[in-house]
Nucleic acid binder design. Sequence first.
DNA 1: TTGTAGGCGTTATCAT
DNA 2: ATGATAACGCCTACAA
Lengths: 364, 364
Amino acid sequence: MTGAAKSSKDHEVNVRAQPSIRDVAALAGVGVSSVSRVLSSHPDVSPAMRRKVTKAVEQLQYQPDFLAQSLRRGASMSVGFVLSDIANPLFSEIVKGASTVLQNAGYLTLLTNSEGNPELDVVNIRLLTQRRVDGLILSTASEDHPATLDLLRRIDIPMVFLDRDPPLGLAVNRVVSDHRAGMTTAVEHLVDLGHRRIGLLSGRPMRPSRERRRALEEVFAERDLPPTYEVSDGDFSAQHGAQATHEFLSFSHPPTAIIAGGNQMLRGALRAIRERKLQIGRDLSFVSCDEIAIAEFYHPPIAVVRRDTEELGRAAAELLLDSLLDRDTSPNRTPRTEMMLTTEFVIRPSCAPVSQARNSLISI
Amino acid sequence: MTGAAKSSKDHEVNVRAQPSIRDVAALAGVGVSSVSRVLSSHPDVSPAMRRKVTKAVEQLQYQPDFLAQSLRRGASMSVGFVLSDIANPLFSEIVKGASTVLQNAGYLTLLTNSEGNPELDVVNIRLLTQRRVDGLILSTASEDHPATLDLLRRIDIPMVFLDRDPPLGLAVNRVVSDHRAGMTTAVEHLVDLGHRRIGLLSGRPMRPSRERRRALEEVFAERDLPPTYEVSDGDFSAQHGAQATHEFLSFSHPPTAIIAGGNQMLRGALRAIRERKLQIGRDLSFVSCDEIAIAEFYHPPIAVVRRDTEELGRAAAELLLDSLLDRDTSPNRTPRTEMMLTTEFVIRPSCAPVSQARNSLISI
DNA sequence: TTGTAGGCGTTATCAT
DNA sequence: ATGATAACGCCTACAA
């Protein structure tokens, strides 16, 4: 159409912001495949070729387009991390551990947040698979949301569950914390101090909550004590922590010790306790889960069931990387792999011997 | 080669895990462009066509490949978020605010963490641009790392800085907190209570630290007070907080009030104060920055300069979305836009009148 | 309204 | 060792 037709099959000079591999090839006066070979350090390239290409690459500040690479290679070098509460310090530490490991392996972490809403889990998982993530780390808002399970069953990429026991009916990689061990020690400590009425602020019915509850029940059962504990199910929010604590403390025989199953519930509980002008360690014993600054600096310091959260993230990432690698080498299914990380009870002055006087005083 | 050659140009049935648009077209007995049109809700499609395509899509559970879409469209519908400390609760709240807004606009947030290392910023920014992110939100580890600035100057996508004053020499979008306002109120409060020797635990030389320091200096200057404050520069770590606090408290005339410019430094300071068996509100007044659970529940509660961190993230995301949209409509440069969000000083019992007796007692 | 074909930027196959 | 070329999966002129 225009008078100035370009000569046959020459590569027209690129005016885009980003130079393409063809610009490099043109500048270096070589074929595009040679450029590709140099950049992916293919064995069969002459030193001369390498020099020419490298020079052109530097001159143009060329960077390969990851999108195009991913499309062609069929691997996006990214993993999706499905999170239920991104703002929770606990999770951000887990994310840190995982993303560091993944980044070192050349993977980018794609984070999604479902704010405790199982429906959003579904949306997010779909989003991530559409973006062709190579693998998935899952800390879902629910363990047994049918839509989530359906979707996951259909997805054919490696995945690792984080502290979840999904009833998937298929082999699945999991990294879990041994909540039960730490909680058992904690409950035994409380019982040794004379506590019989213990209130557990529990979250949604998922693995961590279940394991903690089970620890509580088992200690009482093993010691042939009547089940004078109370468990308050709900979500993991501060609001539930506060409301349930108020409920506990308005019993005619209120708990003499309260256990918070997470740092949000801890905050709620502390608020409720402050409103009632009670003092932890004197009027009430207290244990929380997961180390957090408040626990250490509260007056008195609050005993916690501690675990290494960054390690949890690292472990999940490493397990996923294993699956990713296995998949490349042998396309047959990776056998189910599971990892359990330890927890540890840290005794602090928030746990005190139950005072019968004080105890009955409250209960009136 | 094999005897069973397939007929001319038929689309061979796909055995991959994910069906492609051609599988849908084949199943529906239509052209691929029709499928594309239906899925992108193009106006010119007959109801009959829509029905056929929709049915095939559902039958195959087809989901378009985002990678291919991005490559073709030249937009990845993702933004990079360059973070210096992903594990800090402050940042995770900001991330939450931003990623929620972005997700609602169809964008995915790609997070990178540089752990306070400016070199990693460079690596991460390069990584993100290679992945063809459409925009960038930057909370870099350093404000004036030359390599970072060089790189950013070459990048031609919309970006928003978060609480940073980069000497870029070019128009740039910024969202900042008005640290100075809150800090001014805080310092005035301390001065009104009689404090003259105030120690500021400052972080790396970036906008937040600078603004806080400036507030401190200005209050003293305005009241014609001699500059009897102390500023300890360092990083934002708990370790620096602890070490600097120890240093302050070992002066022959130690500060009667300490201000921590961040929650990590706060933790370090509290540790140092505990080691010295001092009590905040009695032996020493204290102010911290950014609301965090310890501040609220410490005994006594700690006054803070508060800001809405989620809003900060939301604002950054919205500013970026504006730029992204502007860019689509008019390719001419977006004019520099800046937003300042308020801060607020929350008085708490950690600030008490300076007791001359106690004061001189410490200073001995 | 619908279908065909070319190309986004790569990589891998196949000749040379 | 190197270069041309066909995909990867999608969108969008353009033609019908």
